[in-house]
Amino acid sequence: MPAHRISSDQEALDIARELAVEFRLEASVRDSQRRLPWAEIEKFSASGLGGITVPREFGGAQVSYRTLAEVFRLLCAADPALGQIPQNHFGILGVVAHSADAAQKARIYGDVLNGLRIGNAGPERGTKNILEMKARLVETPNGYRLNGKKFYSTGALFAHWVPVKALDDQGQPVLVFVKRGTPGLTIVDDWSGFGQRTTASGTVLLENLAVAAENVLPLRKLAEQAGIQGPASQLIQAAIDAGIAAAAIEDTVHFVRTRSRPWADSGVERASDDPYVIRDIGDLKIRLHAANALLVKAAVALDQIASVAIDADASARASIAVAKAKVLTTEISLLASEKLFELAGSASTLAVHNLDRHWRNARTHTLHDPVRWKLHAIGNYLLNGIAPARHSWN
């Protein structure tokens, strides 16, 4: 299906709102049945949303970070899996902007504008930490060969291009673009997490896979130079959590209004008149408003920093701005999805309502990077002037 070309920030937001209405309709069913959202992902691609960050010089809309965050927040309030699946698509496009040469940019951006999707094969299991890699790209007399095993490969199953992080013969990090269907590439749908169930964030196997030189992007410069690739990736993560929180609060309000019974000692006729329920709904709304406000503030900071030459100080300020938002979006997504049951009552736990999906999604997605380290980064920066480490999780 050919992809629409989005030309402005407002058009991107309008299309995201339209898709969110449609994606919300069967989100609960997809989760409960673990029905992978193939049709919905195709609609996302056809809408043109996948190309909204492509630079204008290559034919894209080059929307602001503020718009990008709002697009993800809208989609994730409808179905957070449909937000997380293209999350790495945009993260990789950020890498392309900094690490690809002109020819690579033209080819990759062209594919994206035509509706092709980019997945992810970066993290591995069994390593010392998330930054360690065992996958290797080796140069042989017959060209490059790629071997490795990846996990948490969100988006790979739905992707046309699967970017793989590996180390080359010199031990330097590279990003290898592997086309779907390439011999030696196997994508396994073995994601069994209790949340974000339809993201298919499973295993990618790479077995003596032939790689063309033009599909290899060096990452050394990205690690050495100051930039905002990490904060931009984290901004999307925060927007996903903000969307989950919004959906949980919306369902809480609806259930309390239409199904919940007031507590016997309350002396009121409706659960929505219970003064303690009223108080807690007000508290949740305030916390959500604060989280969304910091999300916008962080996005605006990225827009401002991206418009000038980025040095180490600017990179650190970007990371801290997004970390502040990430703390509040993490906290409200967990609190709102837990409070839902306390305020809505026992009936809200029945499987027919599947309201536990909000907590399962929040709990699973917020494990992506621990918020305790966000608080540490903020405190260390403000107290001691120490900038956070530069990588995709900061």
Rank of each mutant, 00 (worst) to 15 (best):
A316F: 04
K285Q: 15
G143P: 06
H365F: 15
D280G: 04
P141F: 04
K105S: 00
L113V: 09
D31L: 05
Q196D: 11
S45Q: 13
V96D: 03
E224A: 12
Y109T: 02
L367K: 09
P275Q: 12
G184E: 03
I305N: 02
P173M: 05
T203Y: 04
R220Y: 05
K179E: 15
I85L: 13
F177L: 10
H376I: 11
V138G: 03
W263F: 14
S333L: 01
K128I: 13
G148I: 01
H4E: 08
V174I: 07
I320L: 06
D265S: 11
L382R: 14
H254P: 02
K149T: 08
I41R: 02
Q237N: 15
L75M: 13
P123Q: 10
R317P: 07
A39T: 09
L284F: 09
A210G: 08
W38F: 13
R117K: 15
A248F: 06
F23C: 06
Q170K: 15
F255E: 04
V96R: 01
R125Y: 12
D283Q: 14
R257D: 13
S348W: 07
S337M: 05
S337E: 03
Q172W: 07
M133R: 11
A309G: 08
A226N: 13
A301C: 15
K285M: 12
Y381Q: 10
K134W: 09
A293P: 03
A306G: 11
L343T: 00
P370G: 04
G243F: 09
A106Y: 01
E214N: 12
T186E: 15
